[in-house]
Computed example of a mutant assay.
Amino acid sequence: MAMFDSLAGAVRDGDTIAHFGNPLIEQRRLAAGDALAPLGDRTVIEVTGEDRLTWLDSITSQSVARLRAGESTELLVLDPQGRVEHAAGVLEDGTSVWLIADAADAEKLAVWLQRMVFRSRVTVTLRPEIALVGFFAGGSAEARIVAAAPHGTPLVWRDPWQHVQPGGHQYADVEHHPGSDYAWSVALVDDARALSEPFAGALAAEALRIAAWRPRWAHEVDDRAIPHESDWIRSAVHLSKGCYRGQETVAKVHNLGHPPRRLAALLLDGSDVILPAPGAVVLAGESEVGHVTSSALHYEDGPIALAILSRRAPVGELLVRSEDGIDVAAAQQVIVPADAGATADVPRLTRLSRRPLGDDPRNAGA
């Protein structure tokens, strides 16, 4: 992205800055709240007009109709079968709704939104000229964002992944969810030249996301993905809001069934420092049970990954097969249990006896 062309020491991977020389040091600084991460792989969509909130509420998975200025959330766009098509962070500023989407999805999302306007009083505009910068709240990085903003009032999206959102539900059965420490924020920036060091690249930001079990459209979504399998109901789906496309599947799987796949975290054997690429096959013995969606080298945990597995995949240790055909041992942390869903207490019907009426002792003397 041209906004970040002036940043010294940046090592690029296309439009994304991968790192600034030492991804692990950058990761520590980012986690401590001291580094800023240029996000060339995200794009902003602006939605204006007096119907913007009620309109978005009616066509997406999240309840946003009463969002107030300065509040953040997250939404999904689902197809009629409940599969994830688009995802975006949501920030309302009192005049506009700012949607933060993965760059590969942003234009398609904007086109879909424009098609859905009909008679609603809204305007949808793709805003690629606005730069996005990620940071963790509470440190010096946040202070530098405020100092660089016009009038000291930056537009900042706060990732809702830290907490189960109103109307949401968490499938992960853990005492301390790693997402509770994930105070990730994204600032909208007009002039990246006003930002100051230290910086961190995408490798650092991705490692911290994976460690927090945080799903992302660019990695955890394919043409079969439903929100349940990656625990995305936690932050992006309101289970009791009004109707929207895909709601029937969301409700049915949550109340009566189980998602056919489940997200798991993998702690990889780091002895050979082999980092499997997304798409790498996950094995239980000789049986293929899923694939890696994201992987990274974490500054404390070593090689880590997220993987989408079959619901019936065993809970124990797995193997990940690298592109070179090398099998890497992987300790599994269950994120979405195999029995996730079926939360409704549906009474079972009493089975009717097939015995003839005259054989029932309760009918004696009738």
Results as ranks from 00 to 15, higher is better:
residue 183 A to D: 06
residue 189 V to S: 05
residue 88 A to N: 07
residue 110 A to Q: 05
residue 78 L to R: 04
residue 94 G to V: 01
residue 186 V to C: 10
residue 147 A to S: 13
residue 160 P to V: 04
residue 152 G to V: 14
residue 71 E to A: 12
residue 188 L to W: 06
residue 205 A to D: 04
residue 65 A to H: 13
residue 185 S to M: 05
residue 118 F to H: 14
residue 190 D to I: 11
residue 147 A to Q: 12
residue 161 W to L: 06
residue 130 I to Q: 05
residue 174 V to I: 11
residue 205 A to R: 08
residue 136 F to A: 05
residue 101 A to E: 01
residue 83 R to W: 04
residue 145 I to Q: 04
residue 71 E to S: 11
residue 197 E to F: 10
residue 95 T to P: 01
residue 175 E to P: 02
residue 165 Q to M: 12
residue 149 A to L: 09
residue 106 A to D: 05
residue 87 A to T: 02
residue 67 L to K: 06
residue 143 A to G: 08
residue 102 D to E: 13
residue 164 V to Q: 07
residue 154 P to T: 12
residue 63 S to C: 11
residue 156 V to W: 07
residue 136 F to R: 02
residue 157 W to C: 00
residue 135 F to P: 02
residue 177 H to N: 09
residue 117 V to N: 09
residue 160 P to A: 09
residue 130 I to P: 00
residue 204 A to P: 03
residue 132 L to N: 02
residue 179 G to P: 02
residue 124 V to M: 09
residue 92 E to I: 02
residue 145 I to D: 03
residue 201 G to E: 03
residue 148 A to Y: 01
residue 132 L to M: 15
residue 171 Y to K: 06
residue 179 G to D: 04
residue 161 W to G: 04
residue 105 D to M: 10
residue 106 A to Y: 06
residue 171 Y to W: 11
residue 98 W to T: 00
residue 201 G to K: 05
residue 70 G to P: 00
residue 123 T to E: 15
residue 139 G to D: 08
residue 133 V to H: 03
residue 158 R to G: 01
residue 93 D to Y: 12
residue 144 R to F: 06
residue 177 H to G: 00
residue 184 W to C: 05
residue 191 D to T: 14
